[in-house]
Amino acid sequence: MEISNKTIEVLKNSGWYEGRKIDITENLEFLKERGFEVFESAKKFMEEFGELKINVEKIRKNGTTKVSKHSTCIKETIGVLNSLNFGLEEYVNEKVMLIGSLYDFEIDLYISESGRIFKSIGWVGDSVWEAFDNIINEKGTIIWDKFNG
């Protein structure tokens, strides 16, 4: 999949860089204390893309600027939640884990065991890169009633 230059630029401005691999030990302990099972796709995501605050600027037709704020900061995203089933597993037929939030904590972002990315209202991408490209460029995503897994 080809990723847009805008996506790469926004991620770099947020602190991401090629080969990024942060220490996630503290986050893994935080999640374990709350009963979360952290599978390999979630660990890889957190190592490369965790702890980013992603701000996407868009100039509206009237000339004003809108900023969409997204976060992959696990402690902020999960807060006091525990590992109760979020209900997505029945739609995607595999385990999912909360990994971030979109639009200033209005919509939750999840990763499945296979690495597909979902938000609380639908599919975002079959890979992390596809998901970031869709989010940052505000491409359409598929809502649950149209998603067939």
Rank of each mutant, 00 (worst) to 15 (best):
L31D: 04
K21I: 00
D126P: 01
E18H: 12
T77W: 12
I121A: 10
L98T: 01
S120V: 06
E48H: 02
G63H: 13
S101M: 11
I22N: 08
S68R: 09
D145V: 05
E9I: 07
M97A: 15
N134L: 00
G35R: 09
S41G: 08
K6D: 07
K21G: 00
E2Y: 12
G149K: 15
F147N: 03
G63Q: 10
D133M: 04
S101T: 07
L84G: 11
K58W: 05
I142H: 09
I99Y: 05
K58H: 06
A42M: 08
S112I: 06
K75A: 00
E90K: 15
N55K: 13
V56I: 11
F105I: 05
K75N: 03
K21T: 07
G15D: 02
R20E: 04
K58D: 08
V10G: 04
W129F: 12
E57V: 02
F49W: 14
Y110L: 12
M1Q: 13
E33F: 11
K6G: 00
S71G: 02
L102Y: 00
I99P: 04
E89R: 07
I111G: 08
Y110P: 00
G149D: 11
T64D: 11
E51V: 02
F30Y: 15
E89V: 03
K58S: 08
S112T: 15
L109K: 02
E51I: 04
K69E: 11
Y103E: 13
F147R: 01
C73S: 12
Y91M: 10
Y17K: 13
G15N: 09
G35W: 09
F39K: 08
S101E: 12
S114R: 06
S101F: 09
K66S: 09
T7E: 02
K58Q: 10
W129T: 01
S112C: 12
K75L: 03
S101G: 15
E40I: 07
L98M: 13
A131R: 05
V92G: 01
G100W: 07
L98H: 10
T141N: 12
L52I: 06
V38H: 07
L88R: 10
A42H: 10
F45E: 03
N13P: 00
R34M: 06
I54A: 06
G19C: 07
W123H: 15
E94K: 08
L52M: 10
W123C: 01
